[in-house]
């Protein structure tokens, strides 16, 4: 076997390995994104139960409850863009936070085991959601490093792989929650 042939085979092999590692990383990103989705769905499922549990008690927060119900139905309707989806989810997060704070004014509600269970489930989903976002960012970080670093960047360039954006907290989430505004909205 000639030396040239060996070199060609070695280079091809290297390209295959680099390509596969890129694909694996891209799949990890998609997988992590699906993870976020799964927990978002779990959260959507909890919202109707939450609304049903609290509406008997929360007379003054009708607007807030209507808003969250409407946000949920828009989010699950399906025909929305990714950015709209993120925006909706941020709004749902804020509305859920507001309900959690409002509960403090209703001692009867705080003693209701059904509600407490729901609240625990919601806390859990929120924490899982945050974990899924962190996992997504870690996967994106690893993928972006591969896309931008030598030698995988050459393969990425040929295949048209682009760096992905990180999941960042929205401007509204970064600011301190203004409870008064939330109830007025």
């Amino acid at each position: 076997m000639s030396v040239e042939l060996i070199i060609i085979i070695a280079v091809l092999l290297l390209i295959v390995i680099l390509f596969n590692s890129l694909i694996a990383k891209r799949n990890a990103v998609n997988n992590a994104f699906a993870g976020i989705d799964a927990y978002l769905k779990k959260r959507y499922d909890l919202i109707p139960n939450l609304v049903a549990a609290v509406q008997k008690y929360m007379e003054h927060e009708r607007g807030l409850l209507n808003e969250i119900t409407e946000l949920r139905s828009r989010a699950i309707s399906g025909n929305i863009s990714d950015s709209e989806r993120v925006e909706l989810d941020n709004k749902i997060s804020r509305a859920l936070g507001a309900i959690n704070i409002a509960v403090e004014n209703y001692p009867d509600l705080k003693a209701n085991t059904n509600f407490l269970q729901l609240q625990a489930s919601l806390n859990e989903v929120e924490e899982q959601l945050s974990a899924a976002r962190r996992a997504y960012n870690a996967a994106v970080n690893s993928y972006n490093n591969a896309v931008q670093m030598f030698p995988t960047n050459l393969v990425a360039m040929i295949m048209g792989f682009k760096a992905r954006p990180f999941f960042e907290a929205s401007e509204a989430e970064r600011q301190n929650v203004n409870v008064k505004n939330l109830f007025n909205s």
Binding site: A32, G35, E127, Q128, S130, A131, A132, R134, A135, A138, A139
Partner: peptide
């Protein structure tokens, strides 16, 4: 699991 690990290790 990557996600569960982060859920536990907040």
């Amino acid at each position: 699991d990557q996600i569960e690990a982060r859920y536990l290790l907040s």
